[in-house]
Design a protein around this nucleic acid. Structure first.
Length: 583
RNA sequence: GGGCACGUAGCUCAGCUAGGACAGAGCGUCGGACUUCUAAUCCGAUGGUCAUGGGUUCGAAUCCCAUCGUGCUCGCCA
């Protein structure tokens, strides 16, 4: 309804302005401050001063005069307040909003017949997922949900860097060292915690062992890499054994968020099927390709980049970006659009990739990046290799534990007599704990730097997940008490400011989804949930539902609560935060 | 040093892409509200040179330039 009304306002302003012989490109449509009784406003009058040679308030009046609300379904009244033209919504606007939101899938946008592949996380399978890169799966998964809800046909991919040096080192270490060589027990009983110990000891050996021993190890590592490059099945199998095991554990960890993937795309796939070789041949014949210092490079100066991109080493082996080029051409061949969630340290690489893709004749407008900055510890960066950092598993465990304590301490002074069992406590602790971690990350702009601090990450106070989740639980509580929600109600009975305000916020959900999806910014939805929760709580305070005066009002309010529940449930779904039925 | 990002209340953040109504929340501090649909809530008070300096504009947190501070980056690593 919000979007329909916005279209009506645009139409009304356009015709009013053309009546006045004024330009109609910029209508100045905006959302007015809270204390103004209007859904939309226009500040266009300011801009017409040179055209009309009169004061803005006068111009606003002339515009308002030329709009007949009766011509529009959702416009009740057009008024002016100083230089602003304000548009208030009709009863039909609120009635249709209520009706639309009574659908459980409210907010979901129609199918766009467009496929999108969202690549996220793609962390090298070297060990447990730590908090430093936890932003990636959380933002990525929210993006997958958001785009899906916005009508795209979405697939989530994890690109597995299984052909790089790191994995060759890991494979060598895994094959070379023995359980007895490892100094510590795994930090957790899961495969990636077990195997990362080989990776760490291998790296330490390469740093500390004597020259001869290191040379021997390097020879073995190189042979693994060469094996991959030349397509030796044995090399793929050796590396694959390590990769698949570690990845299996990481996948379990990520599923706790939850972040699920439709496909794990290995880069060796593009080496095996010959597409990397073919791509290198195509790069070589480009005008920008140069052979320098025994290596093939791409001159990106015409794209404003000083640095040349090496795509084939002197020893004839490919590089990460070369393989990623083949990967992206594969994406272009199979999907309409591609979005990649990347850490800021990969930004330059992403720019080089895009330039090279463009040179190869791809339509790079179909490719977008979402950049986030890493989460660091107060004392510095987290590193899998060095074993510094906070594991995502530990963060989630701690969050759940604190949430459980919270639930239990609230049990005693609980008014509501609804007998929460131990299963409920467990469920609520998990929903709130995990939700709080996710919400904390997804609600902020990804480009802002974050320093990890336990107390901050686990703050359950307002403006966090539980605040919004609580609204959902309240809705469910009321609806459960009422047993049934009436089929037809009289929406005109919802006339108090709090009811109107709630309907107004509900009406915005589809527009919020549309905008957040277009900008690839899930945090817009998080901001919306907060505004929604505030508005709902005002309604909750002022408007009794079950004990409302008159059955008509009670019925209408029940329908409103159902609509509110769908709205908050769907917004939370998009964020990947669970919506508890009770708390 | 070059490139990119970030800098809004004591703290954590919205708002910036498409400039407009006194810059919004939460935490904190102080004071209130549970015999009433769940107080993980609500109400009130407190708190801001929107990093700094210029510019564009009727109008700038928002656009442009410069400066300062912080982070990332500038490998035949990924």
């Amino acid at each position: 309804m919000f979007r329909s009304l916005r279209a009506e306002v645009a139409d009304a302003l356009t015709s009013a302005l053309s009546d006045l012989d004024c330009p109609t490109e910029d209508l100045g449509i905006e959302e007015p401050p809270e204390d103004v009784d209007a859904v939309f406003a226009s500040s266009v009058a300011f801009r017409l001063v040179p055209e009309l040679g009169r004061a803005p308030p006068e111009i606003a009046g002339e515009i308002a005069e030329r709009i007949d609300p009766d011509e529009y379904e959702y416009v009740r009244e057009v008024s002016t307040q100083g230089p602003y033209v304000n548009v208030a919504a009709s009863d039909a606007y609120y009635a249709d909003t209520l009706e639309a939101a009574r659908d459980e899938r409210y907010g979901e946008l129609p199918d766009r017949q467009t496929s999108v592949v969202v690549e996220h996380t793609s962390a090298n399978p070297t060990g447990p997922v730590h908090v430093g890169r936890a932003r990636n799966p959380i933002i990525g998964d929210a993006l997958v949900r958001l785009l899906g809800f916005a009508g795209y046909d979405v697939e989530a991919h994890y690109y597995v860097n299984d052909a790089g040096r790191q994995m060759a080192v890991f494979t060598w270490a895994y094959e070379t060292f023995d359980e007895s060589d490892l100094e510590a027990e795994p930090a957790r009983d899961r495969i990636e915690y077990d195997l990362v110990r080989y990776y760490r000891i291998g790296n330490r050996y390469l740093e500390e062992a004597d020259e001869e021993a290191v040379a021997e190890a390097e020879a073995e590592i190189e042979s693994i890499m060469r094996g991959l490059e030349t397509g030796e099945e044995e090399a793929f199998e050796r590396v694959g054994e390590v990769v698949d095991q570690v990845l299996g554990g990481m996948r379990e960890c990520l599923s706790r968020l939850p972040a699920e993937f439709d496909e794990f795309v290995k880069e060796t796939r593009f080496m095996r099927d010959g597409s990397v070789d073919e791509l290198i041949e195509r790069l070589r014949v480009l005008d920008a390709a140069v052979y320098e210092d025994d290596a093939w490079q791409l001159d990106l100066e015409s794209y404003g980049m000083e640095k040349k991109l090496v795509f084939l080493r002197a020893d004839d082996t490919s590089l990460y970006t070369t393989r990623d080029l083949a990967h992206h051409e594969w994406k272009f061949a199979n999907y309409d659009r591609a979005v990649t969630v990347l850490g800021e340290d990969h930004k330059l690489q992403a720019e080089q990739l895009e330039a090279a893709l463009d040179m190869l004749g791809n339509d790079t407008d179909r490719l977008d990046s979402v950049i986030y900055s890493y989460v660091n510890l107060p004392e510095g960066k987290m590193s899998t290799r060095r074993g510094t950092g906070v594991q995502l598993d530990d963060l989630l465990d701690e969050a759940i534990e604190r949430a459980r304590e919270e639930v239990e301490s609230r049990m005693d002074d609980r008014i509501r007599d609804d007998d929460l069992g131990s299963e409920d406590v467990e469920r609520i602790a998990r929903q709130v704990g995990v939700g709080a971690v996710r919400y904390d990350i997804v609600s902020k702009q990804p480009t802002k730097a974050i320093t990890f601090e336990w107390d901050r990450a686990l703050d359950f106070e307002a403006q966090s997940a539980p605040y919004v989740q609580y609204v959902h639980a309240r809705c469910c509580g009321i609806l459960a008490e009422a047993d049934t929600v009436p089929g037809t109600v009289d929406p005109d009975l919802l006339g108090t400011p709090e009811e109107r305000a709630l309907l107004s916020v509900i009406a915005r959900l589809p527009a919020v989804i549309e905008s957040a999806a277009a900008d690839h910014e899930p945090h817009q939805v998080a901001t919306y949930t907060r505004e929604f929760a505030e508005t709902f709580n005002a309604f909750y305070r002022e408007c009794p539902v079950l004990t409302a005066d008159g059955s008509g009002t009670r019925d209408a309010r029940l329908a409103l609560v159902a609509a509110a529940r769908h709205t908050v449930a769907n917004a939370l779904f998009v964020l990947g935060v669970e919506a508890p039925k009770s708390m």
